[in-house]
């Protein structure tokens, strides 16, 4: 799906809506400054920006793990607040519909074995054991890590940990997948495999939001880009092809060097008009 300017989503029909959100770590280090954005069901959206611009923080807000100091966040037509997520029923519904793959797989893969790790989410969702066992086996097979099932996470390589982290989220079959720098630290073949998987999941109706500063894979990974400036604000929000063509903007937000061309343009690849 290629998004044209006319197809840009409105807040009315959005699945996730962030309005005027600001967040500071320790009340001193700003990460988000008056950020507003929305994501429609079935979209592939990339949060683009240089290091430290607030992409990961926004992903955590979307995952209901951090709560804005100012502004508000609405998901599935319900306000997501710290207080609201203390309601067990709401928390269970929200957590089962929103899956998040962290940038640091080390922190996400914490169970004694890979099988236990993948079963962690479904167990907390309260699924039946037979269904959990079936889902875990299917996920292990889909991610080609069946042979790792009884291994401990500390025995795995970086790429294997990333696969386990993705399996541990997909096994919960969330509607929305949030991914923080999904292709970082992966070799070329694993990157290709992951992109194909995300495209397939999106085609099946999953909403995908990912944070990245890798422009090379962007045209396959996202239909729309929300670009962050280094002052933690949204610089622009538009279709991927338009954002990739805007060299001045990419240079201003420190995604490409001033005077250089975006990787796709530099490679001579055609961009959709």
């Amino acid at each position: 799906m290629t998004v044209s300017d006319a197809d840009m989503p409105t807040a009315d029909d959005a699945l996730l809506i962030v309005e005027g959100a600001s967040y500071s770590y320790l009340d001193r280090f700003p990460a988000l400054d008056d950020v507003s954005m929305s994501v429609q069901s079935g979209e592939k959206v990339a949060l683009l920006g240089a290091n430290g611009c607030g992409k990961s923080t926004l992903l955590k807000v979307l995952a209901g793990l951090l709560f804005p100091d100012r502004g508000r966040y609405t998901a599935f037509a319900a306000h997501v607040t710290e207080d609201g997520l203390e309601d067990a029923q709401f928390a269970r519904g929200f957590r089962s519909r929103v899956g998040v793959v962290f940038q640091n797989s080390e922190a996400q893969v914490f169970s004694p074995t890979v099988r236990e790790e993948i079963a962690f989410g479904p167990l907390n969702m309260g699924l039946e054991r037979d269904e959990i066992a079936e889902r875990v086996d299917d996920s292990l097979a889909m991610l080609d890590i069946l042979d790792l099932a009884d291994r401990a996470p500390y025995q795995l390589s970086g790429g294997q940990k990333k696969r386990v982290a993705i399996a541990s989220v997909l096994v919960m079959n969330p509607d929305v997948l949030l991914l923080d720098e999904p292709t970082a630290t992966l070799d070329a073949r694993t990157q290709d495999w992951l992109i194909d998987l995300l495209v397939e999941l999106n085609a099946a109706g999953k909403t995908i939001v990912l944070a990245t500063h890798d422009l090379n894979t962007l045209d396959r990974l996202a239909d729309r880009c929300i670009v962050f400036s280094e002052d933690h604000r949204v610089a622009t929000d538009g279709p991927t092809h338009r954002v990739l063509r805007d060299q001045d903007l990419l240079a201003a937000v420190n995604l490409v060097r001033a005077g250089s061309r975006s990787p796709r343009l530099a490679a001579g690849w055609p961009l959709p008009s």
């Binding site: 928390a91 929103v98 996400q108 907390n124």
Partner: peptide
């Protein structure tokens, strides 16, 4: 956070 995100 990773645990909470998966319903812990």
């Amino acid at each position: 956070l990773a645990m909470v995100a998966r319903g812990y």
